[in-house]
Every structure is written in structure tokens, then in C-alpha cells.
Design a protein around this nucleic acid. Sequence first.
DNA 1: TAGATTGTTAATCGATTAACAATC
DNA 2: TAGATTGTTAATCGATTAACAATC
Lengths: 240, 240
Amino acid sequence: MRKKQNVQEEPDDIYSIPAIADRAVSQPECVIPEAVVKRLPRYFRCLRGLLNNDVMKISSSELSDLTGVNAAQLRQDLKYFGGLGQRGYGYNVKKLYTSISEQLGVTKKYTAVLIGAGNLGRAIINSRLCEQRGVWIKAVFDGSPSVIGKEIGDRKVSDVAELRRFCRENKTDIAVLCIPADAKSELLGIIKDCGFKGVWNFSPCELDDCDAGAKVENICTGDSLSALLYRMCEDEREKE
Amino acid sequence: MRKKQNVQEEPDDIYSIPAIADRAVSQPECVIPEAVVKRLPRYFRCLRGLLNNDVMKISSSELSDLTGVNAAQLRQDLKYFGGLGQRGYGYNVKKLYTSISEQLGVTKKYTAVLIGAGNLGRAIINSRLCEQRGVWIKAVFDGSPSVIGKEIGDRKVSDVAELRRFCRENKTDIAVLCIPADAKSELLGIIKDCGFKGVWNFSPCELDDCDAGAKVENICTGDSLSALLYRMCEDEREKE
DNA sequence: TAGATTGTTAATCGATTAACAATC
DNA sequence: TAGATTGTTAATCGATTAACAATC
């Protein structure tokens, strides 16, 4: 099994959004392969952790220990961010972090609305996850009269019937969907109208880009549990 | 882009746990490759949806439309579940669902404890996700005096100091971790002592199997947001 | 110069897909 | 028998990794 250590979510991160002056100038020379893109968020977290601990340089083999990614693969991956490594020395952590942040859109400061102010919605607002990725949740909407008007995380919950108008008046990049399965069909039309660039979907109904008229990222919590159960079963089978 | 349709979480699922009599007898002949395992949860969801709509047979090309997985690949994948297909006819949905459920451990009826009774913990209890996967949450623990003793989803929240004793007296398969980042280090020792087979980790600190002495599945919500932002940026770059 | 570490090549491995023979 | 659809082969594609020359 691959060994990974210390790739953590740092609770306090002074470096969460790089200052303009620090931004990398170089753009990746060509399209980044899918497999590399999937590893970027891990590098991002790891490098942020290093910066918070004032580590300024790192070699591919050290970063390999921290992330569990093979050192040779790491060097291949990091090539997509311009020549940030120096032979005999290693990589400049800050430059690397800045360059990857830029790729991941952290420096763009996207805006978002949260739709669905239930327990999950509250959990997302309270975790500072969105801020860490440069996403600012401007407003919260819900359909249930029992929550409309209440406050969550300093934001007053508005009626979802107001969503269309709100988005017309306030251009918003992202919709964070925390709604129950049955609310999907009624909402889909509204969401298309709002012209979001992205939808971060926690609801148990998978969406695709066509459904939403935007880039969609589904969080399939159930699939993650299934994967865990599979590996537990596999383990038991092996022990027999 | 791949087209996928209708792969949904069905809210009411009479078939969520197959009866003993329906269980598949055949075991996969050899180890299922990683790439196939990753697709199993999607097949599981899709087949459950079909069963709930009384669809009893399906061809690889129909299932391909529903799941977005290439039909040839689907047939390759399904071979790992014994000869459940019939040439000229298609696959028996129920047998296929039963066989995949068994692989995914749904029929095992694992038990779990939920650690952390904040908004996220509440959201997990209220969603019926665990039940759908055959996992029964027996008890809920938290460290904060303000929640201990309160009820969430018919379960009284116990002091996390009781966890060790509880697990000694009640053998438990899984820990569902919904704790803040800073609670990790104190909890890790306790978790190892409890002898769980699996840890489903929602906390922002990634764990590995060694940390926990069990199979670990991390839900890295932040990585999912990063992936969305990346694709949004990519889209904007292309349009320039 | 000597030591360290990158950048790059090339071999290997695994995953995807089209095509079609087998067969219901 | 004719039509449909699987099971299986083989080609292709992309991802991983070891090894080492280049160079700081």
C-alpha cells in the first residue's frame, strides 16, 4: 500500500490566497492530463501546510513522502508548472504553491450562493472550506418557511423563489447545492436560468454538465461509503 | 464529454438490501481491478433505480446510456460477477444487483458509531445513506458538553470518553468521523483501541490505514471543490 | 570539484475500446 | 432461421516508474 503522511487540511492558513505580487507568471505550456489534475488538490493542500510551517524549499523525494505520490511521477507532474525546480536544490515551495493555486482557480475569488440551509448547508458554511479555496458564499436560499429568515453563519436565509432575481442582479459564479433528492426537478430550471459557471452538488441526485448548463462536480458520499465497505470485505476475504 | 443520465439516488428503495434467498452464489473468479471497483458504486445505484422501477432485464448498451460507461467496458466489468448475461437477451437486473451488492458488502449489515454530533453528523444521520448501504449506526458520541445528552435522529449523544468502553462491550465495525481538524490527535489513540474494521472520515485531516489501524476512506470535500474550480478555469481559458 | 537533485527518456504496466465470433 | 446481444480478442491509448544524463 502506498504510504502517505501529513497531507492535512491546515486550520489556519495565512497563505490561503496568494498576494497579487506573488502570482506565477508562467502558464502551463500544454493541456494538463486528467491523472495529473486529480493530484493537484493534494499538492495544493500539502504545499499550503508547508508554507504555514515556513518551509521554503522541498525536494521531489520529500514531497513524495508527504503526499504518497512517486517521486518520479511528481517531477513529471510539476513540469506542467514551468521550470520551478532547480537541479541539486529542489523546488521553491511558494512559487509552486502559487502556480498550482492559480491553476486551481483559488486566485480568481469566485462568488457563490448556497441552496439548501439544512444541516449539510450549515456544515459547509461553518467549515471555512470555501474561503480557503477562494470562493465567497454571498447568500443562502431555502424553500422551507421554517428556515427562511433565520441566520446561518452571519447570512440571512432567503426564499429560494428570490434566487432568479438575486442572480440577475448579482452575477454569481457557483451554486452549492445541499438540497434533498426530491427538490431536484423543480430547481433544475431555475439553476439553468441563473447562468452559473459551476455547480457543486451535494444532493444525492447526480447531475451532469448538460442538466445544469454549467460545470458540475458531484459529491457522491454514498459511493465513498461503498468503496470503504468493498475494501473491508476484500480484507475479510483475504484473511480467510 | 461522456454522457450520463439518470444515475440517481432513489429516495425509497424497497430493494435496498436483498433478501437472503436472492443472494448470488457465485464469487468473482479473480481479483477485481481497481478501475472496475471504482465503477461498482455507480452500477449499484443505477441497478437499484432500475429495480425500483420494476425493470428486470437490461442490455449493456442500455446500461451504458444510463451510467455513461462504454458498453464494451461494461461487459468486461460485468464478467467479474459470473455469467449473469445471456447472449441475445441481456442481463438479469436483480441477479446483477444482488451480486454487486454482495461485493460491496451491503449484505453484511455492518454496525457503526458516529463520532461528532455537529451539523455534518446530523446531516449523515438524517440522510438514510448508511441504511441504504447496509450500515447501521448504533450510537453517537461527541466531546462537547453542550451536545452530550441531546437526541439526534432517535439516538442520544454520549460522551466520547465512553467510546472505548462502548466498543469493548459492543463490537462495532465502522467509525464515522465528523470531527473538527483539531480533535484528530486526541481521538486517534482511542480509535485504534476500539478495533474498528473501517473508518469513514469526513474530518478535514486525511488519515491513512496505518494511522487508524483500519481501512480508511477519506472524503476530501475540498479536493472536490478544487476540481470544480479547475474545470471552470479551464473552460474560461478555452473560450479566450 | 563533489554531492544532490532535477529533467527526460524509455520500458512497463494497466485501462479503454472497437470489432466480431459465439450463441441465445 | 433471423435478430440481438454477449463474451473475448487484440489494438490502442494513457499512466506509472526506473534509470541516468544534465546541471545546479
